[in-house]
Nucleic acid binder design. Structure first.
Length: 261
DNA sequence: ATGGCCTTGGCTCAAGGA
C-alpha cells in the first residue's frame, strides 16, 4: 500500500496537478494540507471521477485538510476534539487534523501551525498545539491499530533537514523548542520517521520558498513527514520525496512524500 | 539587513504562509 502526504497550497488552484499526480503515482491514500476551501466548495467530483473518495475538513481561506483514498476510510474523525473531547474544541477552529482507518491502519493527517516568527503569539500557539498533539496521539496509541501520522509538520527535525541551518535559533521551524515539542509528540511515543529508515544523509527537502529561486538553487527544508509505529516501520519498503510536481508551472511550494508498506 | 513570491478575499491592498 502506498500512502502520501502533500501540502498543495490551495486544492482548487492545484487541482490539475493533484489529479495528474494521483494518476501517475497511483497511491492508495493521499493526505492533503492547506486545501483552503470550505467543505461545500471542495472539488469532490474531480476525485470521484478518477476513482478516489475524498474525506474533508476545510475552512475559508486558510488551513484545511483532506484525505483522498481509493477505498473509503472507516471511523473518520475530524479535529482534536473527536478524540480528546470538548476541552480542546477551541483548537479545532483552525482545521488542521483529520484521521481515518484503512486496511487496519489508523492514518492521521496533520497541518501543524507555521508559527510565523519565533516568540510571536502564533509561535506560542504552535507549541501549545504540539502539546495537544501529544495527548491526541497518546490516546490513539491506546488502541491496537498500527498508526501512521503524516503531514506538514512545519518543523525540520535535524540540521541536515535544512539547506543552511546557520542561525537556526532565530528561524521558525528550526528552534530547539519546536524540535523538543515535536520529539515529545512523536519520537517519545515510539513513532519513527519513515524517510530516515532509507535515507540518512543531508540534502533532501520537501519544501522550497517561492522566493529567490529557492527550488532551482535547492535551498529547501524537509518539513513534511511520515511517522510510523514500530510494526509499520518494519513493514515499510521505501519512502521517497517526489520533486516532479515542484518543477511544474504554478506549483505548490511543497512536494509529495510517499511511503510504501 | 531586507525582501524576494504566492493565495485568498474582495481590494487594487492586507494577511498569512514558511
Amino acid at each position: 500500500m502506498k500512502i502520501a502526504t502533500w501540502n498543495v497550497n490551495s486544492i482548487r488552484t492545484r487541482l490539475t496537478h493533484v489529479q495528474d499526480w494521483l494518476q501517475e503515482a497511483a497511491v492508495d491514500v493521499l493526505c492533503l494540507q492547506e486545501t483552503k476551501v470550505m467543505d461545500d466548495s471542495f472539488p469532490i467530483a474531480a476525485f470521484t471521477e478518477i476513482g478516489y473518495h475524498p474525506h474533508i475538513f476545510g475552512q475559508k481561506s486558510y488551513n484545511g485538510v483532506a484525505i483522498v483514498s481509493r477505498s473509503p476510510l472507516d471511523n473518520v474523525q475530524l479535529g482534536f476534539a473527536a478524540v480528546l473531547g470538548e476541552s480542546v474544541a477551541e483548537l479545532d477552529e483552525q482545521k488542521r487534523v483529520i484521521g481515518g482507518t484503512i486496511d487496519g491502519i489508523r492514518i492521521v493527517n496533520l497541518y501543524v501551525p507555521n508559527g510565523s516568527s519565533v516568540g510571536s503569539d502564533k509561535y506560542t500557539y504552535k507549541l501549545r498545539w504540539l502539546e495537544v498533539l501529544r495527548s491526541y496521539l497518546s490516546a490513539l496509541l491506546e488502541q491496537p491499530e498500527p498508526l501512521l501520522v503524516c503531514g506538514d509538520f512545519n518543523v525540520a527535525p535535524d540540521d541536515i533537514d535544512i539547506h543552511d541551518p546557520t542561525g537556526r535559533e532565530k528561524m521558525v521551524m528550526a528552534t530547539d523548542l519546536e524540535r523538543q515539542a515535536l520529539q515529545q509528540a512523536i519520537a517519545d511515543l515510539g513513532l519513527s520517521d519513515a524517510f530516515r529508515k532509507f535515507t540518512p544523509e543531508a540534502g533532501h527537502f520537501s519544501w522550497w520558498d517561492y522566493r529567490a529561486a529557492a527550488f532551482r538553487r535547492n535551498l529547501g527544508w524537509r518539513i513534511d513527514h511520515i511517522y510510523l509505529t514500530p510494526d509499520l516501520y518494519d513493514r515499510a519498503i521505501n519512502c521517497t520525496i517526489d520533486p516532479a510536481p515542484r518543477k511544474r508551472d504554478q506549483p505548490s511550494d511543497h512536494t509529495p512524500v510517499i511511503v510504501e508498506l
